[in-house]
Design a protein around this nucleic acid. Structure first.
Length: 953
DNA sequence: GAGTTTGAAACT
DNA sequence: CAGTTTCAAACTC
């Protein structure tokens, strides 16, 4: 009813060709969320479900929400769709409770009737989210536990996982419903798959595909909530879950059931509360279920159930979001992985696999973005090990996978996942600002179109018994998945792509004496553990993508950003391949080489060494920003910046009218001749003066508590006019929790340098950090490590930015820096204007703490960086922008190491002024920018930065 | 398909 | 940490 009318539903319906059919389903459902056809198909579920519903949701509102899920639209409708929205709030709280209850119930039922899956199914159906988690988990765990034979269990898991995957992908429902539901996945899985009538499958697939397209969109809205909910749920699940493991049958239904959960969640969370079509819902649920299952498996392996409750929850969430997305799934899996650092078992393959992780290994050879990894799931991958196919060449890990905050990382990973998926699709990125549905839809479309078939095939192939050598083709399957060919390592070393990617070898692999199989799980884990003990990041994603988010933010730039924006955390070491062949990991990952690379003669088309993978425009912006800030305070810069090419850029309108302002809040002009430069310079000075006089400059922008006027710690080789001539040196802006703001010189190469060390300390201390860019090759990223420490936070931020339901979803995007301890990558972050999707001039936005920023909402502990307000972006993660590559750093640029470099700190007075500033003006991005400018302390050569910094510290 | 090249991973 | 060896993918023919 309501749903049908809602724009969202309409949109969805339009998207899916199959729509008519589903639409009908939806119509059945109360809110349009009505139960997916699949759910209804199984009669038994209905009865049980209803019962459950009644129990769980005493509250009419809640019931309504649940109803939307599946229970057949009839029930749900009864509750009243409208309530859904209203109840959304209610649901959250309720869900948790309900979940617990449901879990208990489930457990009881399961305990009572371990084998009976009806109960489970009912549960699932009845309780959307909860059921999914708990049940799925339970199912999996039970399966594993119960199985006397490890083998059997593993296989069953595999089968399940496969099925789940397929379902999630939307590839195949048939199994879940038909065969799977009744027979054990293990057994049935194989035969049925192949035996299954093509027609039936196809139909389902088609439906699925349609459905799949949309589901994940919802995700962003409710993610944050989910995190919480899931956490609680997860715990419950963990605690309760271990007991009875429903059979495969459950699994099949599980998929359906799963759908329910998401729906509710969505309903809850989505501030917008868009009704979902049955198909969408189903998809979401599927994703959920799948994730849960996987997660479960992982957990089973994991000794400690309670430990990762949150993570698991996150994972689940991620699964949901990515349910339809293979890529996302991969990402999710990676998420799981992160936690692993804390608990190795968890880490297992489960976590790593993710292409998300972007383990290069996982990354299938540079597949075109468009190419969804055809086979996201390796047939062999057990449930926990999702993915294998790292086909997502573009996938890059945005989130650092530092061992540190598991939770944060996980979250970040989630965010990342979404982000990544987007990144994969440039256009999708653009859509970022658009309703999630759209974005996801696009994404899904791609994936599924290509993936369905593949998955389906995979699925069939995967059947253990039916091995298909067909696919064994060199290193890559027809679907694009990698297949190893290890001869000596038994696939227990990172030489093995499968192993490195955290996935089991597929039957299609041509490896010899392979131990990287579910049967040898222990061995594999041990090997993995070993590697990790040696190098905790051994299985961490190698690629970190940062810029991707920008796409979403700036439409204009969207085209500019490419996977190349990512960075290889460790960098390549190519000597002869010139980084133009797949020998080069950077190239292989479709990312540009960075300073972290030791390559020689780099010709990486994605970005040569020393160039950051980011758009020239962005670079420009950054430069301008930097200059601007500097210029405002010092006439020397005059607001002009020279780029590597020697072109001069002028920042204009920083303070003036915003009309022509670029997305970044400033416009850059190239000034061809010096005369112009001077002229501009004078203009800039004037502006600066104006600003100085302008009270509004006083930093209304800054939050006195957390934000403090930046202290320019730039080091300049030259001052005065020459400085103006010289190209702007990128600097990092760090938000310190402390009163002072400082801009740390990114130049300093040696960490050892006092100033640097100092900065580093500061960084560590400060939870807030903004990096404005560091681009020049010469720039030293010694700070990188520090940044790495923060990366999780950033990731988290990203996560939030992407997923938190904000009234004004800020377009904030961020890329997290790699967490590698020694990762040299540099992280740069930019803030976008809230709501505008524009990048704010670096520091200013970040500095201010704006209510708008989701970050503030976020746990403070996790990310102080978030405090920065509008949200931080990682513009550049490590390294210098690609732009630089193309435009070699000007000779004039000063290296951090340069003895001449001086740190300039603003006079105290300025700072205080800034501090006093209010946040009022921040709301408008433009204003914001302008104001921000003033906030920077004047960079005068005369000032001795050290004093300032010391005071701060 | 065999052989070579390449660079990461592993080892010392 | 640096140098060497091993390894398997990528590449070439």
């Amino acid at each position: 009813m309501v749903e049908s009318e809602s724009p969202f539903s309409n949109y969805v319906s339009r998207l899916s060709p199959i729509k008519p059919v589903k639409a009908s389903h939806v119509a059945q459902g109360l809110l349009g969320i009505n139960s997916p056809p699949l759910v209804f198909t199984s009669p038994r579920t209905l009865s049980d479900r209803q019962t459950n519903f009644l129990r769980r949701f005493q509250c009419p509102q809640i019931s309504g929400a649940e109803i939307s899920k599946n229970d057949g639209g009839s029930k749900k409708s009864a509750d009243g769709p409208e309530d859904l929205r209203k109840s959304s709030t209610y649901l959250n709280s309720r869900l948790i409770v309900d979940v617990q209850k449901s879990n208990n119930i489930n457990n009881n039922s399961e305990q009572d009737q371990p084998g009976s899956f009806s109960g489970c199914v009912d549960e699932y159906l009845s309780d959307p989210v909860d059921v999914d988690c708990a049940d799925s988990v339970n199912l999996v765990s039970q399966n594993v536990k119960r199985s006397d034979d490890a083998h059997q269990s593993s296989e069953s898991n595999l089968t399940k996982s496969k099925i789940a995957i397929l379902e999630s992908d939307g590839t195949i429902d048939m199994e879940t419903k038909g065969d799977a539901s009744q027979a054990m996945p293990e057994q049935d899985g194989e035969d049925p798959k192949e035996q299954s009538t093509s027609e039936t499958k196809k139909e389902k697939i088609e439906e699925e595909g349609n459905i799949v397209e949309q589901p994940s969109h919802v995700f962003p809205n409710f993610v944050s909530d989910l995190l919480v909910d899931h956490a609680s749920r997860q715990q419950q699940c963990n605690t309760s879950g271990a007991q009875a493991a429903p059979p495969h049958e459950d699994y099949g239904e599980d998929g359906e059931t799963v759908l329910h959960g998401p729906v509710q969640l969505i309903t809850h969370h989505g501030s917008e509360v868009m009704p979902l079509n049955g198909s969408q819902v189903s998809q979401l649920h599927r994703g959920m279920s799948r994730r849960c299952l996987q997660f479960e498996e992982a957990q089973q392996k994991t000794p400690m159930d309670g430990t990762y409750s949150l993570d698991s929850a996150i994972t689940i969430i991620g699964s949901i979001s990515s349910s339809s997305n293979t890529e996302l799934e991969i990402l999710d899996s990676s998420q799981v992985e992160l936690p692993s650092s804390s608990s190795k078992k968890q880490t297992m393959f489960v976590s790593k696999p993710s292409g998300f992780g972007l383990h290069l290994n996982s990354i299938v050879n540079t597949l075109p973005i468009g190419c969804s990894a055809s086979e996201p799931i390796m047939s062999h991958h057990s449930a926990g090990y999702k993915i294998s196919c790292s086909k997502l060449p573009n996938l890059v890990e945005r989130v650092s996978s530092t061992a540190g905050d598991d939770v944060l990382q996980t979250k970040a990973s989630l965010a990342t996942g979404s982000a990544i998926s987007e990144s994969l699709h440039t256009k999708e990125t653009l859509n970022k600002l658009q309703p999630p549905e759209h974005q996801i839809t696009l994404h899904n479309n791609r994936r599924f179109s290509s993936e369905h078939a593949d998955n389906f095939e995979e699925f069939n192939q995967s059947s253990p018994k039916k091995k298909r050598q067909d696919y064994k083709v060199s290193s890559t399957d027809g679907d694009g998945c990698k297949r190893c060919n290890c001869k000596k390592t038994r696939c227990l070393k990172r030489y093995c792509d499968c192993f490195a990617a955290g996935i089991y070898c597929a039957e299609t692999c041509a490896c010899q004496g392979c131990f990287n199989r579910p049967e040898y799980e222990d061995t594999v884990l041990e090997a993995r553990r070993q590697k990790e003990s040696h190098n905790p990041l051994a299985f961490a994603p190698k690629i970190a993508q940062h810029v991707t988010e920008f796409h979403a933010i700036n439409v204009e730039d969207a085209g500019l950003f490419t996977p190349s924006s990512g960075r290889h955390k460790t960098g390549c070491n190519c000597k002869r391949s010139m980084c133009v062949k797949k020998y080069c990991e950077c190239y292989q990952a479709n990312v540009g080489c960075s300073n972290a690379c030791r390559c020689e003669g780099c010709k990486n088309i994605h970005g040569r060494k020393e160039a950051c993978g980011f758009s020239f425009q962005l670079y420009k912006t950054l430069i301008l920003m930097t200059i601007y800030h500097v210029g405002n305070f010092t006439s020397s810069f005059g607001g002009l910046v020279k780029d590597n090419l020697g072109k001069t850029w002028k920042c204009h309108r920083m303070f003036g009218s915003t009309e022509n302002r670029s997305e970044y809040g400033m416009t850059g002009e190239i000034v061809s001749n010096r005369a112009n430069e001077e002229r501009l310079e004078s203009m800039a000075d004037n502006k600066f003066k104006m600003i100085a006089n302008n009270k509004f400059l006083h930093a209304e922008l800054y939050d006195p508590r957390s934000l403090t006027p930046p202290t320019p710690s730039f080091e300049y080789s030259s001052h005065g006019k020459e400085a103006a001539k010289s190209r702007l040196l990128p600097g990092r802006y760090v938000l310190s929790s402390e009163p002072d703001f400082s801009m740390l010189p990114s130049y300093a190469k040696s960490t050892s340098s006092p100033s640097n060390s100092h900065d580093n300390d500061k960084l560590r201390k400060t939870s807030k950090t903004l990096d404005v860019v560091s681009h020049s090759q010469e720039l030293d990223y010694n700070i990188t490590e520090t940044m790495g420490q923060f990366s999780p936070r950033f990731d988290e931020l990203a996560y939030f930015s992407d997923h938190t339901p904000l009234p004004n979803p800020s377009p904030i995007m961020m890329a997290s820096s790699s967490s590698k301890t020694r990762d040299t990558a540099i992280v740069s972050q930019l803030c976008l204007y809230p709501g505008s999707g524009r990048l704010s001039s670096g520091g200013s936005l970040q500095w201010r703490s704006s209510p708008i920023t989701p970050m503030t909402r976020l746990g403070e502990t996790k990310t102080q960086a978030l405090d920065s307000g509008c949200g931080l972006y990682d513009i550049l993660e490590d390294d210098t922008p690609e732009i630089f590559k193309e435009y070699p750093p000007p000779v004039t640029s000063v290296k951090a190491s340069s003895p001449h470099k001086k740190r300039v700190s603003p006079p105290r007075g300025h700072i205080q002024e800034f501090q006093s500033s209010s946040s009022a003006s921040l709301k408008s991005g433009r204003k914001f920018v302008l104001k921000s400018v003033p906030s920077f302390p004047p960079l005068t050569p005369c000032i001795d930065p050290k004093d300032r910094t010391q005071q701060k510290y």
